[in-house]
Design a protein around this nucleic acid. Structure first.
Lengths: 174, 174
DNA sequence: ATCTTCTTTCAGATAATCCTGAAACTACAA
DNA sequence: TTGTAGTTTCAGGATTATCTGAAAGAAGAT
């Protein structure tokens, strides 16, 4: 087996990393952060900063910032090897756990603040007695209730174990 | 009632527009596009380009581009008034329909292409007999199946009428 | 055909985001 | 204390996304 050429799985991995990065940037997630995540998701062993820098050809600062960010999201963990000082990083590989984590974080960071604004918009216009003001109020309330309901459903699903969620979804499809 | 000050509901509306814009940009949607959408969602009457330009203080080119984009997403419609040549725009106000539209478009534009890459990654590594290559293959397959399953669930939910979806969700919540 | 009103396009300007690299920092070891 | 290995920070640079405005295009009205 030639050692100087990249193996098939490593080529596929590079495509995966690139696509994950592109997907991230369409969903408001920094491309590099998504790429690091993809890299760690598919890493046979935990990796350390310099390996990641080299694989993605990015600077130390960039790698460090995005690794911290990923730790902040709870998508990767720092692990230590006995006798070694440097930090290694590993990603959660279970897809369901990953999705749950992302859902929790996005809710906390984006949905809840948006909901607060909807509530405030509804509250401030509740005295509107007619016309456009009243219509606006109704609309904000409707939107608020929809989001609150959506949060409840998401919370329920996300608190399930993978198997339960699967079973539940199968029933829906059946 | 003083006519020279902005009414309460219009202040609330401005907050809503701003927040919707911010939310959009956290989810990979151009801020202006989201703002125009918010503006039209809360417009008592269909609006035309110049009104939108003024409300959001944006250029004609920007307004036009993002209005077309919104039409492309199916989130707003062009309407004509009899005897008038210019185009008016109105947004779908039903929240459920709106969510369904967004889900359909994002699936088509982002999820399906990403799925193709997963499939290709899995396909290209199916011969890997062991070690990291095999692990990678398994992971891609798992991810692919998860996404395909997610798409099925989403399609099912999205094809429901609002009332059915609500009923179904209520049962889930217990 | 020419005018008028409205729409579209796009090159260049602007703004938002992201990245680099070097210096500062931390902590353990000798 | 000095050295070494690793981590963090952040000012300035690079890149990408977005916006402007003016010119060109379209189509009904006269």
């Amino acid at each position: 087996m030639p050692e100087d050429t990249t193996s098939t799985w490593e080529n596929a991995r590079e495509d995966f990393v690139a696509q994950w990065g592109a997907l991230g940037s369409h969903w408001g997630i920094n491309r590099t952060m998504a790429q690091i995540h993809a890299l760690l998701m598919t890493a046979p062993e935990p990796m350390y900063t310099d390996e990641i820098m080299e694989k993605l050809t990015i600077s130390r600062g960039n790698a460090n910032t995005n690794l911290r960010e990923l730790v902040g999201w709870g998508l990767i963990q720092i692990v230590h090897r006995k006798g070694e000082r440097r930090e290694y990083f590993q990603a959660e590989k279970d897809v369901w756990k990953m999705v749950v984590t992302i859902a929790r974080e996005r809710k906390r960071r984006e949905i809840v603040p948006a909901l607060e604004v909807l509530k405030s918009c509804a509250e401030r216009t509740k005295e509107e007695s007619g016309g456009p003001g009243r219509e606006f109020h109704q609309q904000m309330k409707e939107l608020q209730e929809f989001v609150e309901f959506g949060i409840k459903v998401a919370d329920t699903v996300v608190s399930m174990k993978h198997a339960s969620a699967l079973q539940w979804a199968m029933k829906l499809l059946g």
